[in-house]
Computed example of a mutant assay.
Amino acid sequence: MEILTLILLASALAMDSFAVSITAGISLKRFKASTMLRISLIFAFFQGIMPVIGWSLGLNFVEVISNYDHWVVFILLGFIGGKMIYEALQHHEEAHCINIYSNRTICLLGIATSIDALAVGFSFSLLDVEIILPAIIIGCTTFLFSFGGLTIGLKLGSIFRSKIELIGGIILVGIGFKVLIEHIFA
């Protein structure tokens, strides 16, 4: 897989963590590097490990659905991206009160924001893509986005959340179309 595609995919996957980090940043009373590093590392860990888990699960199904793998990738990324776009356009109010000092809360948020990375890892196994480099890029990108989101949340508040989710959703849907078109015209 091309490095640019991996970076775009990692950026799209990091959007949920970024949006949650903005919300968490609103809860920060002041800049505290240790708290911001802890949250960013937890989000990065889950975003980096979930594709590996999904990839491992997908290896068991490769022979069964190898003739339809591009459709599965397209549907998974399209669904995840579409869901992100839909949620971004709903304009629903969410509570901006996250207990960012609780490791349990941050771990649950890390898991919740990385479920899409599990599906991407599953897709990678269908495409016969090695997982180590993508997992590292996804984890590192998520760390940077999370730290940046915390900083933005601390300074600017929650005004960007829906726009960020919308951009992430569009990127995922676009990558899904790219995979489908490459396989149809290959």
Rank of each mutant, 00 (worst) to 15 (best):
N99K: 11
L126Q: 07
I111T: 02
S102E: 08
Y86S: 03
D116I: 00
A117Q: 03
E93I: 13
D116G: 07
T105Y: 00
G110S: 06
I136P: 04
T113N: 15
H91L: 11
I100E: 09
L126D: 07
I137T: 12
E130W: 00
T113S: 14
L133D: 01
A119W: 04
E94A: 13
I136T: 11
A135R: 03
A95G: 13
P134I: 06
I137K: 09
Y101F: 14
L126N: 01
E94F: 10
E130T: 12
L126R: 02
E94G: 06
H96V: 11
A88Q: 06
S125L: 04
L109G: 01
H91Y: 11
D128W: 02
A117P: 07
E130I: 01
V120G: 01
Y101V: 02
A119G: 15
I111A: 05
A117W: 00
S102P: 08
C97V: 13
I106Q: 04
A112K: 08
A117E: 08
I106M: 09
D128Y: 10
Y101S: 11
Y101C: 00
C97S: 13
L127G: 03
I138M: 10
E87S: 13
D116E: 10
I98E: 00
G121D: 09
N99Y: 08
F124R: 02
G110K: 04
A112S: 14
L108E: 05
L108V: 06
L89P: 02
I106E: 03
S123W: 02
T105K: 03
E87Q: 12
A112G: 15
E130A: 14
I137P: 07
L108R: 03
N99Q: 12
E93S: 12
I131W: 10
Y86D: 00
R104P: 01
F122R: 03
A95E: 13
F124C: 12
E130K: 14
H96G: 11
L126E: 05
P134T: 06
I137S: 09
I115L: 15
I131S: 10
I115A: 07
A135C: 05
D128F: 09
S125F: 07
L127V: 00
H96L: 15
S102R: 01
R104Y: 12
L118Y: 09
L108I: 10
